[in-house]
Design a protein around this nucleic acid. Sequence first.
DNA 1: TATCCCTAGTCTCTTTTTGAGAGCGACATA
DNA 2: TATGTCGCTCTCAAAAAGAGACTAGGGATA
Lengths: 133, 133
Amino acid sequence: MNTNVRVPQFAGKECDMSNWDAGNCPVRDVINQISGKWSTLLLQALAERPYRFGELRRLVPDISQRMLTQTLRELQRDGYIDREVFPTKPPSVEYRMTELGMSLFLPLSQVLDWANANHAAVKAARVRFDAEA
Amino acid sequence: MNTNVRVPQFAGKECDMSNWDAGNCPVRDVINQISGKWSTLLLQALAERPYRFGELRRLVPDISQRMLTQTLRELQRDGYIDREVFPTKPPSVEYRMTELGMSLFLPLSQVLDWANANHAAVKAARVRFDAEA
DNA sequence: TATCCCTAGTCTCTTTTTGAGAGCGACATA
DNA sequence: TATGTCGCTCTCAAAAAGAGACTAGGGATA
């Protein structure tokens, strides 16, 4: 076993590459949850204001109920959102972001901004790649 | 069709929620690619220095060759990394980050830093959630 | 009164994605 | 001769995701 593993720098901090296996790496443990297909989308919505289940479903038209429930539960489990049930006649459930979720969304929104700003460049790269292949 | 859709703010910019379906949303188009299980991990590695295929495989022990090849191709297609083949006797292939990739990694590394810093809080939230369930 | 719809899910079934592992071809080492 | 190295690709099994039916209890509609 190699103990002299390279230690890459990013943003001034170290990341121990000797434990990049799933179990030990904090980054992977956190990122794997929020890197799902729907997670960032829901975080983006809930960062703006609280939403109810059905509202989120209509907001993201191509998510299935199954994945919406599941993704919300995972985000709740990791402490990014809260789930509040109101015992109205058709029962209603509201999801809202926590402090932790907001603190995550701060850097995350920078990435979303980057995506907006550089979408054209990415699309151009795809065209180039597909042309020469 | 509802044209008066709420427009959430994040980081001072607008995101048109009326096209949150997969085809039209720039954010989803960009994010969906880099939100794979392995993408951020490989970007993180290649942000530090160029790596060869086998090096990456050893660095991320639990990735399959299939997913490593596939994820690298996708990152290459979107213009984040370059692939250079050296016709040595056992052929060697080097992957290195592009300018575009580096510009993405700038905000992305902020999220990775957040993950490092808040791993404990996330784990605590999980324990709390699992206890009351 | 019978029928429908609303809510926030769960359950089942099918399709897509991922993982585990073999094979490849040319050359180096033991 | 046998085995290992390189960067893949291929096949088959397992896991994850998507589509859609079903639930309960009350309110509105016909």
